[in-house]
Design a protein around this nucleic acid. Structure first.
Lengths: 334, 334
DNA sequence: TGAAGTTGAGCATACGTATGCACTATGATG
DNA sequence: CATCATAGTGCATACGTATGCTCAACTTCA
């Protein structure tokens, strides 16, 4: 069966194709009566506009590209969910690519650009300066989600990583912890650096330094091993700050099931993100909640705000969710 | 900056646009020499083919639509990951929509079809007969993932739900359990019905019947409550089969943290899916693993196999992962 | 030497829509 | 009554690519 086009509708009503196009766009030049007839005919014939043809003509696809580098992290399903829904509400579509292990954003971005997406969101990954320039030349907006660039040459939306990490450190110290350790993600990422730096900075303010620091690679298994390494060290930590919840869960399981330790009696563990399992009784993880909804909204605003220039680095505040995995006393006024 | 088109390349080399098009498609009619010059010029100018224009011409977008109804279920990130990667390898793109709560597939599908996707995959949801016919008319292939229709009017890829559930029941019974209960997802879904039916059937074969059956709505929280209801019943179960892992985790947390029961000593709990947390020590969940990779491959095969007609219902075998949440004795030969 | 075949390329058009411009009624204005 | 604005519609073209057909130049073979 042949697809029905605006030409078919035009023929059915006895008007020109341009009149159909205008009628369906509710152009003021077309009379009420004609519009009515055209809408009726379009419905009867089951006409659906061809967005591909429209895109070619208008030079605008209403598609947004999303490149996810860490889709298996339980933090992202909620992001994806909100993103697709908000876009759908705006009448836009989402084109998704998950970057395979061992590949870079640069490897998958070009194939997305061939589809002329109006904008690109990149989560958990950064952009080579080459691609950044290329995007800039073709005037395709980009927003980094949960990552930032130090030179502010690209839009980014992040949580206030530094501030939140400082708060975590302060609360732990004020509650009597003295042997603090950290499990990082990947040292080449901005989230890692910012959370790490904030935490360590606050320690120094109190005359302390890290008794251990390990890399968990942002995975459950990586953090499981990292925690075990930490506990083999000379100075055993009495608190571990994991810069992502998946890793906190791994660390928690490691010290509990492998070493038979009690949490939070023997050791406090704090995470970052507030993924769903964090609030389950089996973990009851104290963590920093990232305001996903706000972050997604800001991301899309940056993407579509026509006069967003120069690029902005948006930061939204996180919120410490105090649960049972860390021995914390009441907050002290500062 | 103006986008560079095949016309620009043609002008640069001094040939016609059609020659450029053919050269880049490696058409045999174009001489090696001309091809070389064209490729060079294309690279120099930074030419990227416009897939939108190409799609309009060829009536083929190389885009696949994915409609996910249950994206927050931890089972799906892995599906999504494999799907985008396999598609990318095939030179195709993924257009994603997550169905918001309270909406139907029918509400979001049309907007996807306007983009002329070559095929549609629907997870955790079904298709109205109206939409089924509409898709059939425009010759757009559909595959249901993890759901099936009883009349086989649409392609589907599922796990062998019945067989796996029978095995779960048999193993539980052979291990001495006599008071079996089940927590279902949503009664209107095929996965619910098949798993429920297989489980109950095997019970009857052994002269048993369910001591309880509750609905968990495929969510952690729903199953948490469902488990508590089950334990308030007249005949307390000594084993609960949850037809999805998220629910098994909720049930587990409910009986352990709320009721202080020991698993598997006081009660056995079995899930379905084998999501990542299932294998974490905190849960150590005995469950049926769905072979995601195979399921995704079969889905894409069905989608692109030109002579896949009539629609098929593909079933792939699940695998019982024996862990610590159920008291199981060694399997008995049958 | 002439006919047929082969190679390499261009011309023209199509895909489905949007839109600038021209055109025709119709009524308003002086 | 001539002029002009206005409303309503059609014509023609453009977007960037693919492709059927035509054509010229050259090679091959009898």
């Amino acid at each position: 069966m042949k697809r029905v086009t605006s030409v078919d509708v035009a023929r059915a009503v006895g008007v020109s194709q341009s009149t159909v196009s205008r009628a369906l766009a509710d152009d003021s030049r077309i009379s009420k009566e004609t519009k009515r007839k055209i809408q009726k005919a379009a419905a009867d014939l089951g006409y659906t506009p061809n967005e591909i043809a429209r895109s070619l003509q208008t030079n605008k696809t209403n598609m947004v590209g999303l490149i996810m580098a860490d889709i298996l992290n339980p933090f992202y399903p909620a992001v994806l969910d909100l993103m697709t829904q908000q876009l759908h509400q705006m009448g836009k579509q989402l084109m998704l690519i998950s970057v395979p292990a061992g590949f870079e954003v640069d490897d998958v971005l070009p194939s997305m650009l061939q589809y002329q997406v109006d904008g690109v969101v990149i989560t958990s990954a950064v952009l080579s300066s080459h691609m950044r320039d290329l995007l800039q030349n073709r005037r395709t907006r980009v927003v980094l989600f949960n990552r930032s660039l130090e030179d502010f040459s690209v839009n980014s939306v992040c949580c206030e990583n530094r501030a939140a990490s400082i708060e975590v450190a302060r609360r732990l110290i004020n509650s009597g912890h003295r042997r603090l350790a950290i499990i990082g993600g990947r040292p080449d990422t901005s989230t890692h650096r910012e959370r790490y730096a904030g935490f360590e900075e606050e320690l120094r303010l109190h005359g302390l330094e890290l008794v251990g620091d390990e890399i968990g690679g942002n995975t459950y298994d990586g953090a499981y091993e990292a925690a075990l390494r930490l506990m083999k060290g000379r100075r055993k930590p009495d608190a571990i700050f994991c810069i992502a919840d998946v890793m906190a869960l791994g660390a928690l399981d490691a010290v509990r099931s492998k070493l038979g330790m009690k949490v939070p009696d023997d050791i406090s563990i704090v995470g970052f993100d507030d993924i769903p399992p964090a609030s389950w009784p089996a973990y009851d993880l104290t963590t920093v909640r990232q305001p996903i909804r706000a972050m997604v909204s800001r991301t899309l605003s940056l993407l579509f705000d026509p006069d967003n220039f120069p690029p902005m680095a948006v930061q939204v505040p996180g919120k410490l969710m105090v649960r049972g995995s860390a021995r914390l006393s009441a907050p002290v006024a500062t």
